[in-house]
Amino acid sequence: MAKKIIKKKAALPKKTSKVKKTVKKLSLKDQTIESLVELIRVTSTVVPDDVFKTIAAAAKNEVKDTTADYAMGIIKNNIDLAKFKSQPLCQDTGTVIFYIYHPPGFHQTPFKEMIKKAVTLATKKGYLRQNSVNSLTGENAGTNLGEGHPSIHFYEQKGQEVSVKLMLKGGGCENVSAQYSLPDTGLSAGRDLEGVRKVIIDAVYKAQGKGCGPGALGVCVGGDRADSAYFAKKQLLRKLDDKNSNKDLDKLEKEIVETCNKLGIGPMGFGGKTTLLSCKITHANRVPASFFVSISYMCWAFRRQGVVLNKNSAIKKWLY
């Protein structure tokens, strides 16, 4: 089988031609690893189109010659430069989180090994920083592998296709992510959507500029503490311009963005019109005794991508 990879538009032309010239055959395993490394490269160096459009619109909206305008200008330049140089958008390349959607009968264990290999390679190539630290010893093995790293989630789906989504979740924005337990007396937030609205806005206020705003939120209403946080983060896989199929949540998402942008926190907390780029909300059942609201804050360096692999494990399609 000929080695074939669809390069993301972002790739430098020079690199594409180099790939085309190579005619050596790759094993299925090697091809998978190569596709995964390419997924990591693009995720780390290029923001997805939907995110870029939202950032560009926000940048236009800021008042000329203000600190907010200045910050948005630097952010936009950084996005262009990272893509052009094929270098990480931010030096914190974050927690590496894979979401794999596969057909019935798929073998997860060998795929996990290929992911680990790809992560090691991508680290060597500088698409990922040596970013994984043993929490007990403080040791950094320099490979981005270790207990729980990378984070990998599998989902079985109908059909024959394998698709892989990847999120690189920065540390600064993870630090301002939050979980509330309703009712919250301090905020007069009860166990209803109005209470949910209050705690989300409070989280954005508390974050100020510390999560490298303007940020984007993934939220989960309900679930136990662990699932709630997990589902909240997974909402960041949604395109920023999509619609929530639940009417009430769709309305709440829009309202939160509008309200948070009135807070005046602005890019980097310098003050300004854009505090929040988007908010995506899902829900999960809870037990009567608890009511958690989890908020996952993503920085402007919003890194997520996804690919569909063909039967030879080459990249068939980009998902964002």
Partner: peptide, 30 residues
């Protein structure tokens, strides 16, 4: 740096003549 600092630093800035400059977080390439 980024994110700002607290009162102790602010007081020292005033007393000794120092300022805190905020760079754009994440703008590693620029």
């Amino acid at each position: 740096g980024k994110g700002g600092m607290g009162q102790k630093t602010l007081d020292a800035c005033k007393e000794y003549g120092c300022v805190y400059f905020h760079a754009v977080g994440g703008a590693a390439q620029v």
